[in-house]
Nucleic acid binder design. Sequence first.
RNA 1: UCCUCAGUAGCUCAGCGGUAGAGCGGUCGACUGUUAAUCGAUUGGUCGCAAGUUCGAAUCUUGCCUGGGGAGCCA
Length: 463
Amino acid sequence: MTAQRIAQILRAGQPGETVTIQGWVRTKRELKKFSFMEVNDGSFMANLQVVIDQDFPDYANLLKQLSVGAAVSVTGELVASQGKGQSVELQPSQIEVVGGCDAETYPLQKKRHSFEFLRTIGHLRSRTNTLGAVFRVRNACARAIHEFFQERGFLWVHTPLISTNDCEGAGELFSVSSFDLANVPKTDTGVVDYSQDFFGKPAYLTVSGQLQAEVMALTFRDVYTFGPTFRAENSNTSRHLAEFWMVEPEMAFCDLVGNMDLAEAFLKHIFATVLEQCPEDMAFFNQRIDDTVLATAENIINNGFERITYTEAIAHLEKATQSFEYPVAWGQDLQSEHERYLAEQLFKKPVIVTDYPVGIKAFYMRLNDDGKTVAAMDILAPKLGEIVGGSQREERLDVLERRITEAEMPLEELWWYRDLRRYGTVPHAGFGLGFERVVQFMTGMGNIRDVIPFPRTPLSAEF
RNA sequence: UCCUCAGUAGCUCAGCGGUAGAGCGGUCGACUGUUAAUCGAUUGGUCGCAAGUUCGAAUCUUGCCUGGGGAGCCA
């Protein structure tokens, strides 16, 4: 008999059905004449309760083996529960302990654990209620992202993880090399001889798929990337990872407004889909992690995002009654405290800030007619800060080349990127969305290390 | 990388110069259907590491390591 998933049984199971479940014991309560065992198979927040009578064959010995964490296969009949808290429970006819679990040394207990401790047992923490819910929601987010783009005719393009351009200048890079690090080839002048390395030149893990996504957008119009990205920054915060997932749509024949419209519709779709597909998990987060996540999700889905220019944002900040640690001045980048003030205090919802000063943004962002600002847009989310960063791209070859030179970027290496402006150039735009930050925002989880199964951060890559 | 707080039992913490503690967990037992069951007993320690001060250090000092929170960098 094929095993059924516990989610299906708890949602639609009827008394009288015979089912087999396969999962792990979450908790067990022994009484005099019978025992309750709760089994979880990862498909659902709640467990399926199995009631084992003392007359069950080999009762005493069996119960010893049914310790928390043990893997079991149980066949039996669903019956209406006599207790509160669940409508059906399983009356077993057969229980197999597939893999035992030593209760003396098993680190997970039937109590709340700190997330700090759970990070030290990364191979077991997904078995907890919270992390289990996180990873189901994460999956639902990923699915919603693909759905959103696929329904709109976007092509999912796979951009390379290994890059020989540090074009975006987005932070420190991880080097990729096949050299024996103990014996690196050097030239006569003593510098590393990359011509002997695997790619014949320095190579890195990618910090963004954007430049390649632009290539594909100028063929397929609407494309998106969704994959891992790497930053070797020594960042130690609750919002940064050395390896994280990023979604980067890129659209040809599209300006900044179209870009903002898409980003807003995109976030609304993700939230709506997750609420629909993981209501139990979201209720759990609202109850146990952050009692504003459901209201926030409804707010995102039902209300338009605030849209202001950078210049207007500066004006708002200058009028603010609260004082800031960092001074507010046109031309300076917004600090965390400024972003939080705008999103949390002033508007209390996501804010799209556009048209930043040219001096603080990347070379590829389109120069506005005023010559002082670029067609950039950041979406600032309450509690998280920047969740989306995007722009309309500079499609004019002469302007782009000037900006590359001013930014002291290698003009030669970007020959193929400049070629796009030479052969059939077109206004185009796109943005990058930090996937983990969306999951954080959705679930209310305070630390980004708890929304990715195996976090990579400075000095930490154990699992 | 900077600022700041913290490392004591498997976990969460108290103790803050004089014999190392509690709750939870584990184990054993009791128990009329339990929901992190309850009740009783019991088990459990290189007090992060290294040096120093002291008759005596978990406790005071210094350095290092690790973790949390905040900042910078950014998504």
